[in-house]
Design a protein around this nucleic acid. Structure first.
Lengths: 142, 142
DNA sequence: TTTCTACTTGCAAATGATTCGCATTCGCGT
DNA sequence: ACGCGAATGCGAATCATTTGCAAGTAGAAA
């Protein structure tokens, strides 16, 4: 009874390492870095070299399975599953927690671009500020 | 008659290298990387070590004189003068040209955040797609 | 099921951006 | 001009990411 696992994406060769990475991404609540995934592999039985994680992640991105979501102020690239739906995040500038944004500011937006005729295919939005915990902590201090 | 130069920002110690970096940023049309600035220094008389450029840039950012604007798909951080006005960019996914966005999608946006009570202090928006040259080139090919 | 081959991975070493350490030099107030 | 603290030159260190290559493996073909 492992049928509650997602079907394996077609056209992707199935290996232990790829299964592991996909599984981690599927259960992640927020975007993960390559070394997040690598660490998780070490802590569990599954072993998988860091460069392999990078390769798998790049491959997933190239296949449209995952998306690369670098977050400002982070020196590392973050990856998440491509859920084929818009997602944007708010990042706490204090603790770097990443929180999902439930609506998208682009929905009703008509961009005016300096160079005319720029064919837009996507966008990235990121809010930053203080999450409730940090905000509370900081107002306590002052 | 050098009075058309901007006044030197107060509280900032004036050095040859800082003057150079500030001048480059003032005349830049789009965000620059540390090595863009370093290269410009080499090509002109002004010499200035790369690590110094980084230090100056960090310092400018900490003083609110400049802002760090990492762009997706670029491995380098980009810096631009803090013109105390909102700026967002569209980035060409083909040639990586950076083009300014004339309006801001956040103007009329009420964010709904997964975690309630996130105190937003800023945001980052980036559109991506094809600039007119690349778009033209690519439709020519197909 | 066994074989064959192309694709994957383990591993180590390379790379590229950025930072750090420290001796020297340079602004700038006195 | 003098002196001190801050800024720079320079090289070496660091960190994330990439690459090269030999060995291992999935899965199509036999």
């Amino acid at each position: 009874m492992k049928e509650n696992e997602s079907a394996w994406p077609m056209g992707i060769k199935k290996t232990k390492q790829r299964k592991f990475v996909l599984d981690v991404l599927e259960h992640a609540e927020s975007p993960l870095s390559a070394s997040d995934i690598f660490d998780k592999a070490r802590s569990e039985d599954s072993s998988c070299w860091l460069s392999t994680v990078y390769r798998i992640l790049d491959y997933f991105v190239s296949e449209g399975l995952a998306v690369k979501t670098a977050v400002m102020d982070s020196s590392m690239a973050l990856y998440e599953l491509n859920r084929n739906q818009h997602r944007h995040y708010a990042v706490c500038v204090n603790c770097h927690k990443v929180v999902e944004l439930m609506n998208c500011p682009m929905e009703k937006f008509e961009p005016e671009i300096a160079e005319n005729d720029f064919r837009i295919v996507g966008h990235r939005v990121e809010m930053y500020g203080y999450c409730k915990d940090c905000d509370r902590k900081m107002s306590g201090i002052h």
